[in-house]
């Protein structure tokens, strides 16, 4: 992918944010003094102006720059696989709970990353899950997500 075009697009996005931000904090509120509400808008507007200016400079710089290719990852297959696995893991945790989701996520991710030994990988996964569970839920009394998928059916 060409770095230049991404940079230009991002600078344009920042300029848009700057425009949207400017004036967005100008409010009247009777609960506090005018100096208070004014200072809030001053602060936000200053951020918007500086953002707009610096983003414009960056826009010019990136237009003038030489187009170079940008390499995001050496191994696109694994890179995107990890992103998908992470999303699936977090999404799944809300339904099947922390323990099950983790017991599934760990061996699959290790396999995806090239770990070949299933037996070892399952043992490691179980150990990590147990460790996290004991430390967070038992030790620190943090209630990790519980399975919710079946409760709705029953009650």
């Amino acid at each position: 992918m060409k770095k230049k075009y991404l940079e230009v697009a991002l600078s344009l996005l920042f300029i848009l944010i700057a425009v949207l931000l400017y004036g967005s904090a100008d409010t009247v509120n009777q609960a506090v003094s005018k100096a208070s509400t004014d200072s809030t808008s001053t602060y936000v507007n200053t951020l918007a102006i500086v953002l707009g200016l610096v983003a414009s400079v960056e826009l010019v710089l990136s237009i003038l720059s030489h187009p170079t290719t940008i390499e995001f990852t050496k191994d696109p297959r694994r890179f995107f696989a990890l992103i998908i696995l992470l999303i699936a893991y977090v999404w799944g945790m809300e339904y099947i709970g922390f323990i099950l989701a983790t017991l599934l996520f760990l061996p699959v991710t290790m396999r995806m990353m090239g770990y070949r030994n299933w037996v070892k990988s399952l043992i490691i996964s179980a150990a990590i899950t147990l460790f996290v569970y004991l430390l967070f839920q038992v030790g620190f009394e943090i209630l990790l997500p519980e399975p919710t998928v079946l409760e709705g059916v029953l009650s």
Binding site: L85, T102, F105, L106, T109, M113, I124, I128, V132
Partner: peptide, 10 residues
């Protein structure tokens, strides 16, 4: 890194 990536993600 196969083990690290998985474990750190958790």
């Amino acid at each position: 890194s196969s083990i690290l990536v998985a474990a750190i993600s958790v």
